[in-house]
């Protein structure tokens, strides 16, 4: 019998209740999703059974440093996904802006941010995405930028559509933009997804719900920011990103 949305919803609720009970009993908050989150079926064979092995980082640890990127790694229009073809893409034009910070609240400067997303119809420019929604010849859906001195970034794009997937029967992903982020240390590496406020699909999506902590889940949802909207041009969303993990600076100064 195929898995239904109701099956998935029940599993999601059970795992969330178990987490909330552990919190009530004094367990610390868990920010990241568990790798063995059963409602996301693809995780079943792809998470380690053994606990991760803790590494006590010392200043010589390779992972406390990280790859560097610079102006040679991006072009001037990489942050504007609406200007990469001869015509304008279809959809609702948006800007997504925010800041890249470390856990001490310090701006993470000059680092590479990459993003990718489906088009306004919910289709990726990827051969294996065969969802019967139209491709847009004027939209690829890939962007890059370097953060500014204050950790700021800004992309212009179109709002992606929701799309179906095969986790269970009638499974739909809420609209989202994939983000890839580098900090000053490889330990700060992050790949994640940004969502749009008020999406009715949130409750049904096992990927978003894999973040069982309510406050942490909210941190994945951008805020509509009217100040960022541009008259007769685009709607503005604000999304700040906080990188986890120690860096060489963190070791020198003690934990934040």
């Amino acid at each position: 019998m195929p898995l239904t949305q109701r099956d998935i919803d029940r599993e999601v609720a059970e795992l969330r209740e178990a987490y909330e009970a552990s919190r009530a009993a004094g367990a610390p908050a868990v920010h990241h999703p568990a790798r063995d989150y059963a409602p996301y079926r693809s995780s079943a064979l792809r998470h380690p059974h053994r606990p991760l092995v803790p590494v006590e980082p010392d200043p010589e640890t390779v992972e406390l440093h990280g790859p560097v990127f610079g102006p040679t790694d991006v072009t001037d229009i990489d942050h504007d996904l609406t200007r990469q073809h001869t015509g304008e893409p279809l959809g609702e034009r948006i800007t997504v802006s925010g800041r890249l910070l470390d856990r001490a609240g310090r701006p993470v400067r000059g680092q590479l941010i990459e993003l990718w997303q489906a088009n306004a119809s919910g289709r990726y420019a990827h051969l294996r995405d065969q969802h019967p929604a139209p491709l847009d010849p004027n939209f690829t859906g890939v962007g890059r930028t370097l953060t500014g001195d204050d950790g700021s970034y800004s992309f212009t794009t179109v709002k992606p559509g929701a799309y179906p997937w095969r986790n269970h029967e009638n499974a739909w992903r809420p609209a989202h933009i994939h983000f890839s982020l580098f900090g000053t240390a490889f330990t700060q590496r992050l790949v994640t997804q940004m969502y749009f406020p008020g999406d009715p699909l949130f409750a049904h999506d096992p990927i978003l719900q894999s973040v069982t902590d309510e406050r942490a889940r909210q941190a994945l949802v951008a805020a509509y920011d009217h100040e960022l909207s541009r008259s007769e041009w685009s709607l503005g969303y604000r999304w700040d990103i906080v990188l986890d993990g120690p860096s060489a600076t963190w070791i020198e100064e003690g934990r934040p």
Binding site: W116, A118, H126, H178, T192, P256
Partner: peptide, 18 residues
């Protein structure tokens, strides 16, 4: 300290982007 932004899967369709 600030709470970190949670991780998510890279998904199946990063191949034309990363």
């Amino acid at each position: 300290p600030l709470q970190p932004t949670p991780s998510h899967t890279v998904g199946p369709f990063y191949g034309y982007a990363l």
